[in-house]
Amino acid sequence: MSCWDTIADYGLRSIGIGERLLPTENFTLCQQFTLIGSGMLWNIYFGVLALLAGFFFAVALAVGKASQSRLIRKPAEWFIFVFRGSPLFIQFFFAYFLFLSLKQVIPFFSPLTSAWLGALVVLFFNTAAYSAEIFHGALQSIPKGDLEAADAYGMSGWSRFRRITFPTMLRLAWPAYTNEAIFLFHATTLVFFSGFPAWRQKGDALYYANYFADKTFNPFIPYPILAGYFILLTLCIVGLYGLANRHLNRHLPSNARRPIKLRPTLLR
């Protein structure tokens, strides 16, 4: 069986398309690469959706935490504290438990007990809390002059937030937010490892790596493959966030430093 056949059979195995049975003997490197790569789909799914949804919630939480009103500030503070202060392991455990009880009372909530929704919700809350803390820090360090200038222009409320506060906050928070995105993608490996059950052997990259490590009794092949995939993924994230960072800072003179730096060599 050639490697292309393997990819055709198992490339989408993690979402239930292709061969039903996982390989059980004569494990090839190709199978390991294909299945673990197939599992990466789940890691990307969890990571991307949680990040996107979490971003908006995080901004709301950050603004809430910076609010003057106790009624808004306290809940935001507590939410951030609880989700940042406890291991994801424990959050998954309680979430699964809670979702099960919810399901028994109201059948409408039954998708929550499966990983595709339940784990996503937990990761969403988790990343929202971490990002909110980062954004809150950025909000605090917005230069006073920027806000005064906005006032001088007669901006207030929403337009001041949208045109001054929000972009500046993003710009200040972006490096730390990049780190948070990397951490979140790494955290997605915990979903099937300790949190939610895997149905019909559909799992994430770590699930398949674990499967191979268990079947071949050799951890030195599947886990480094998994590590390789994640290094690639991390590079992509860093690249994308770097692009976004350039966009956010496009008006700043610091970006113009580059041509200046190059000039001496050109003159010489």
């Binding site: 039903r20 996982l22 895997a198 149905w199 052997q201 499967y211 079947k215």
Partner: peptide
């Protein structure tokens, strides 16, 4: 990753691990 899990998967029943 037990022999029971492998057995259920082989039968084609819905396995939840």
């Amino acid at each position: 990753t037990t022999i029971q899990a492998a057995f259920v998967a082989e039968q084609g029943w819905t396995l939840v691990e």
